[in-house]
Design a binder for these strands. Structure first.
Lengths: 137, 137
DNA sequence: CTAACATAAATGCATGCGCATGCATTATTT
DNA sequence: AAATAATGCATGCGCATGCATTTATGTTAG
């Protein structure tokens, strides 16, 4: 077992950590809101925009999903019982479709973000949190 | 935007980092060996065992996949052109199934680990690597 | 103005995953 | 020994995803 392969094991442990937290968040969102993590992120990004709407193609880069995955994500959110997101298109460019965070969506995403934050706090040690911040650059 | 929600954004950045590296590794493995990341991890864990074989239920905990996902992962590896893994069962407990790393599998996993390590080295900065190690505890 | 090309999103298809379930085997209880 | 429960794995099903293709619209070169 030579030196280099240590890096792989470091990576594997790192991935396990990531997976553990991801599952915590996903489980919480699924149980309480019937939302997946990607859907939550999606609503977060929309909410950060002052107009509460963005073109699908813009969101694609932010959220790191394929174009088709994003299109279907919006479809799911349109069907969701909270009706948090709607599609809209404008005459300026009829190719584009905007995802719009509805008033209901805006109300809920703020609440959800606070709760997700709590789940994070509970899932992470102080040490974890300070380690995490090293990557946030 | 209050303080707590900063933690979410830290987490999002962290996840993006994880995703970026994961894609690098997966892309490499897929292109060169027609293997997915889980399949690679699976072979790694098998290889670390001196007998080069483990029960599926043991691997389940190591690799963090569901039981069904694991069962199908082994099926895929049995079909793989390198024939790296076989199933075996013994009289001691006929319910159990062992995944066995074949000689071909053993030969290749060592080679692949070295290459994956190189991909990791190329994908990560020095700083990334030292940050990673903080989680490996 | 038209023909070619470019861009944005939707859709068909394949893959990998988890959940729920079923089958075979083993362990435990009566 | 028979009945019941637990264990280990395989399989049906549905979901989220990516790739390739299609459809609609916009842009540009001639």
């Amino acid at each position: 077992m030579n030196q280099p392969q240590q890096l792989i094991h470091t990576w594997v442990n790192f991935s396990k950590f990531h997976k553990r937290i991801t599952h915590s968040l996903d489980y919480f969102l699924q149980q309480k809101y019937h939302l997946g993590l990607s859907e939550f992120y999606f609503m977060m990004f929309l909410n950060e925009n002052s107009e509460k709407q963005l073109r699908l193609s813009q969101l694609q880069n932010m959220i790191g999903l394929s174009q088709s995955a994003l299109s279907r994500l919006v479809s799911r959110l349109e069907q969701h019982h909270l009706k948090p997101v709607e599609r809209a298109s404008y005459a300026e460019d009829k190719r584009s479709v905007y995802a719009v965070l509805t008033p209901s969506g805006q109300k809920h995403i703020n609440e959800i973000m606070n709760e997700v934050n709590n789940v994070l706090q509970q899932s992470l040690s102080e040490k974890d949190i300070s380690n995490l911040k090293l990557f946030a650059e």
